[in-house]
């Protein structure tokens, strides 16, 4: 259903989606991770909370992954 020449574009789009989402998540995590480490250095109880907070921006990466999967398999 897709033109072979278009397949390349889809793959490119999927790649960009995952990549950008990953960069975005990374930027978000940068601050949160730093903060989590800081809090944890004072009190180990913050490990759980810190980890949870740190992985929240990870969802953006997952969105990127989902979009790329859709791109790859639906179109």
């Amino acid at each position: 259903m897709v033109d072979p020449s278009q397949a390349g574009m889809v793959a490119l789009g999927a790649g960009i989606a995952v990549g950008l989402a990953g960069i975005g998540a990374g930027m978000g995590e940068q601050a949160i991770g730093a903060a989590a480490v800081g809090a944890m250095a004072e009190d180990e109880k913050f490990f759980g909370k810190g980890l949870l907070m740190t992985v929240i921006p990870e969802s953006i990466a997952i969105f990127g992954l989902v979009v790329s999967l859709i791109l790859l398999f639906v179109f």
Binding site: Q30, A31, I32, A34, A35, A36, V37, G38, A39, A41, E42, D43, F46
Partner: peptide, 19 residues
């Protein structure tokens, strides 16, 4: 700038909670 302060502020806040 915010990122620069994230670590130290989180740490200080944790310290403050122990006051």
């Amino acid at each position: 700038n915010n990122v620069k302060y994230a670590y130290i502020v989180a740490r200080v806040r944790a310290m403050k909670s122990k006051l």
